[in-house]
Amino acid sequence: MTNKDKALALINTFATGDTDVAKNLLAEGYIQHNLAYGTGRDAFLGSVTYLASAPVKTTVNNIRAFEDGDKVFLQTVYNFAGAEPNPSGRTQIDGTMEKELVNAEETRKIVSAFVGDVLRGENPEITVLQ
């Protein structure tokens, strides 16, 4: 099973409620990137259990999945997240479905700068990506 296969199987546990699959795929020290959820395997398993018990069944629609070395990137639409257009008229799944050949090292530099500058707030004076 590739890392991409593992990531897709894990994210699908939100819809299936299969905590055994999730437990087998997650390390004890799993770090959650979504601040709405706790970090660690037990917190993830709790989320899967909670969603499985909700009155409305969770659906998971995997739009894109890419694997780069040991990193996997998923774009997924959940029924609780929605995909309605925002005020600009765009949705979270707009864009090409085809993977373009890109310079992987240059892309990594751009993403790394974005994470540091924007997500971690290391350079708050930067207002526009260059």
Rank of each mutant, 00 (worst) to 15 (best):
E106M: 12
R41G: 01
L8K: 08
P55A: 00
A15L: 02
L51G: 01
G95C: 11
D42Y: 01
L74N: 10
R120S: 10
G82P: 07
T39F: 03
V128I: 15
Q75F: 05
K109Y: 11
V21F: 00
I11T: 12
A27L: 08
G121A: 14
N61I: 02
A15P: 00
E105S: 15
S53E: 12
F73A: 11
T2P: 03
A83D: 04
F80M: 05
K99E: 15
T13S: 01
A81P: 01
T76V: 15
T16K: 04
G69C: 05
N123M: 04
K6M: 11
D94K: 04
F14P: 00
A104E: 13
G89C: 07
G29E: 10
D20P: 07
A104W: 06
L129N: 11
L26Q: 02
I31W: 09
R120L: 14
D18F: 12
S47L: 04
S53I: 01
D70N: 13
M1T: 15
N12E: 12
I110Y: 14
V60H: 03
A43N: 09
V60F: 03
N61Y: 11
K99W: 11
Y30C: 04
E98F: 13
V48M: 05
V102T: 14
R90I: 13
F114Y: 14
L26V: 05
T127H: 11
I11R: 00
N103S: 10
S88L: 13
G29T: 08
K57T: 03
R108D: 14
P85T: 07
T127V: 13
Y50T: 14
A52G: 04
A7F: 02
V56C: 00
E98Q: 15
N86S: 10
L74Q: 08
L101Y: 07
G46Q: 06
Y50A: 13
F44M: 10
L8A: 10
E98W: 11
K99F: 13
A22H: 03
G121L: 12
I126D: 03
T96G: 15
V77Q: 10
K57M: 02
E105C: 12
F73Y: 11
I63L: 07
G121V: 05
T13Y: 01
L25G: 03
S47V: 08
I63F: 00
A81Q: 10
F80I: 03
I31C: 02
N34C: 09
V115L: 15
L25Q: 07
G38V: 00
T91M: 00
T49M: 04
V128R: 08
L129Y: 09
V21E: 02
Q75G: 02
N3K: 14
G82V: 02
S88R: 06
A81K: 07
G46R: 04
G82M: 01
P55T: 00
N12G: 09
V118F: 13
I110R: 14
F44K: 02
T19L: 02
A43H: 07
P124K: 06
A81Y: 10
L51C: 07
T96R: 09
L35R: 03
D42H: 04
N24M: 05
S53Q: 08
V118P: 01
K4N: 14
S53N: 09
A15H: 00
A54H: 03
